[in-house]
Simulated scan of single mutants.
Amino acid sequence: MKKLVFIFALSSFALTACSKPENKPVQESAQTAPQESAQTAESTAASQPLAAGDTAETSLDWAGEYKGVFPCADCEGIKMELELKSDKTYELTEEYLGKGAGKEFKSKGTFSFDTKNPSIITLDKAAENRKFFIGENFAEARDMETGEAIDSQLNYKLTKEAN
């Protein structure tokens, strides 16, 4: 009888002792693992420059037609069509709507991706060196001097047309 009580007590102690440490470290590691991996990823990203594959030029499907209507001070808007070709040439068409209807301007030439901000393209002199931010399925007009976003509530985005 003493042996049975002793075995039972020893088994209970062993099971209790084994189960507590397993639950607690699992909970702690589940809570800290995402934090540690996020911190590691942040520090790694901060210490390493962007890889060549992490630019709009190489990671986005940027070639295609972008369309939209830009605001106009003295007309209803400017219908814009920007076609970016994979050989880094473009065609830009601007058509004035409303008051200035019928006025259409076309520019053709080459563009380049900015070295400081590879998500920005600059059209050549034929299009007055205009700058556009290239995002996933959109192109947004930028300040021609700085490449910064235009500080306005107005819409300066062109949407990529589905092929």
Rank of each mutant, 00 (worst) to 15 (best):
K20E: 00
A52Q: 14
G77C: 10
L84T: 00
T115Q: 10
E128H: 08
K106V: 15
N137P: 01
A139H: 03
L4D: 00
G100V: 04
K67C: 05
G102S: 05
Y96G: 10
E145G: 01
K20Y: 14
A17K: 02
D124Y: 04
Q31W: 04
G135N: 04
S37F: 00
E36D: 15
F133G: 03
R142H: 05
S119W: 13
I78Q: 12
K85R: 14
L4T: 13
A30R: 10
K131M: 09
I121Q: 01
I121E: 03
P25T: 09
R142T: 02
R142S: 05
E36S: 05
K67M: 07
K24E: 15
Y66S: 11
K88H: 08
F132M: 00
N129I: 06
Y66R: 01
S29L: 13
E81Q: 15
C18T: 08
K24R: 11
T55L: 08
A9E: 08
S43Y: 13
F138M: 10
G64H: 04
A33N: 13
L97F: 05
A101R: 11
E128T: 14
T44M: 09
F70Y: 14
M80R: 09
M144S: 05
L50M: 13
Q31N: 11
S19A: 11
K67R: 13
Y90C: 03
F113E: 02
L60W: 06
Y66D: 01
E76D: 13
S112V: 15
Y66E: 07
E104A: 15
K79V: 03
G77M: 08
I134N: 01
A139T: 09
F8H: 03
D114N: 15
F113P: 00
F132V: 00
L60N: 04
G109D: 14
L82E: 06
T146F: 06
A30K: 11
F105G: 06
A17F: 08
K106L: 09
L10M: 11
E95S: 14
G98P: 06
P118H: 12
S112N: 12
E83G: 08
T122P: 06
E42P: 00
C72V: 12
T110P: 01
A17V: 06
G109S: 01
L50D: 11
C72H: 09
S107N: 13
T146V: 09
P118A: 01
E57K: 05
A33C: 02
T122L: 08
V5Q: 05
L97E: 14
K99A: 04
G100W: 11
T40R: 15
G135E: 06
G100L: 14
A9I: 02
A14Q: 06
T122R: 07
E136K: 12
Y90V: 11
A101Q: 10
P25L: 12
T44N: 09
D74P: 05
M80L: 10
L10H: 02
E94G: 09
E83N: 08
Y96M: 10
L97S: 04
T32Q: 14
K116N: 09
A141G: 00
S29Y: 06
A141Y: 11
